[in-house]
Design a binder for these strands. Structure first.
Lengths: 260, 260
DNA sequence: ACCTGAACACCGTTCAAGT
DNA sequence: ACCTGAACACCGTTCAAGT
């Protein structure tokens, strides 16, 4: 039968840590957060649990490795891909002021580079929704693990050419990274299936908007006031605006306007 | 024996959803993230699992309720407490520009109110470390759940009196909230025990700083460059600086300086 | 309506035993 | 050195049965 040959084929290639991490990412991509179990791995790899545990210490380590692999790819990928991965959406959803997404070679300005890295992370999480949860967990449990380090380095590099005094590099970069992580955490997607199509997303926004307007006026006056903006907003655009807001804060804090 | 009487005492007061949530918070505070199990609840409440599931739908719902309870308390608490909860630290660690922590009545300026709410969340997470993980999980799994709503409302209210056009309220508030959530997620504490004492924290910072300096110079030039700042930084102070940076970005973006 | 407690399905992890 | 597979401890959750 086909099953037997596929299994033996799988068995034929040797089991490595790399192959386990690869399969873990596949499982997570295919079926989301709860799908990565040792047993799912063993059936897909045609082995037993002991084989897995020979190569990886435990489940958390594997989750870390999977997240690290995807994040590293997202951060080292040529920046153009970030915009190219979502072809149809990019055309409609991408508004003005997103010139950063198409630098032909090296980024033009540090700001462009920061925007490009941020969008790279944003898009990576859009492609791998489990990453949002995983990033959040890693950052709380191991705040200076390899993933956080890589993100800090990627954002910090352009920050260091931004003109802020070196003494402020750490705090400045932290502010940017923390915003990026907070924003991507919430933006991942509310309902994995409903948000896939454009119509489904519109419906979701309309529902949420209506829910906000129906809130208690005494307890939630602000949320009611912005219910309309909720319906009309675009996550990616809002994310970029936030980046620009923080960048404005950083630069104006350090270099008061030279022209009167 | 004492055990028997205590148990029957517990049994005597009726089991309510509220009492279950209360006990859940106690367990989480006492022993952290993994300590909240149905069985731990049953022994502590002197019941069986069936009794628990009569009052709460499932474990996730209980976790949500626990987080909601603590967050709500942190957001409605008179702002003074935020500074008062960490008496000795507040004296040393609190630098300049933190006048916001002691408004005698209503906050003086919107900025002060925003800082006060943010610090309230920061301190709540410092007191309940499991909140960091829980907040991160909730925001990714249910981006517009009650907890997020409450935080948005608390930040959005002062934002609406900041002078930015109403059309930008949602995006502006999002930027602030996302920064706050990202920052508090990472800041919770690296090693729960080691960071409790001042000496332990200093040692942790020194170790991390040294680790950064020992990184690969080609891969991590930036992290190496800021290793010193890591050793000397204070989380709370850095958090406040980040808030101020974002606030600067918001206000300068909307009201160009009127004086030349 | 509210609670009991045994039972179920499903985890991650271990480890003697094989090759 | 690398893998097998049964076994263990521990989860969340259900449900017939009681009061």
């Amino acid at each position: 039968m086909a099953t037997r040959t596929r299994q033996s084929q799988r068995r034929r290639q040797m089991l490595t840590r790399e192959r386990i991490v690869e399969t873990a990412v596949e499982l997570l991509d295919a079926s989301g957060d709860g799908a990565l179990t040792v047993r799912a791995l063993t059936t897909r790899l045609g082995t037993g649990p002991g084989a897995i545990y020979w190569h990886i210490g435990n489940m958390d380590e594997l989750l870390d490795a999977a997240a690290d692999a995807v994040i590293t790819a997202a951060l080292t990928t040529p920046r153009d891909e970030a915009a190219a991965t979502q072809p149809d959406e990019a055309a409609t959803a991408q508004p003005d002021g997103a010139a950063a997404t198409h630098p032909d070679r090296a980024a033009a300005t540090p700001q462009d580079e920061i925007r490009a890295v941020a969008l790279g992370l944003f898009d990576a999480i859009a492609e791998h929704p489990w990453l949002a949860t995983q990033l959040a967990l890693q950052i709380t449990r191991n705040p200076w693990g390899p993933v956080t380090l890589r993100i800090f380095e990627s954002i910090g590099r352009p920050v260091s050419t931004l003109g802020v005094p070196q003494a402020d590099w750490f705090t400045t970069t932290s502010t940017l990274v923390h915003y990026i992580l907070g924003a991507t955490a919430q933006t991942s997607q509310s309902d994995e299936t409903a948000t896939q199509t454009e119509a489904g997303r519109a419906e979701f926004l309309a529902t949420a908007s209506k829910a906000w307007r129906d809130l208690d006026p005494d307890e939630y006056p602000f949320m009611r006031a912005i219910a309309d903006q909720m319906r009309e907003h675009d996550d990616r655009e809002q994310f970029l605006t936030g980046i620009n807001l923080v960048l404005t804060g950083i630069t104006t804090h350090h270099q008061p306007p030279t022209d009167p």
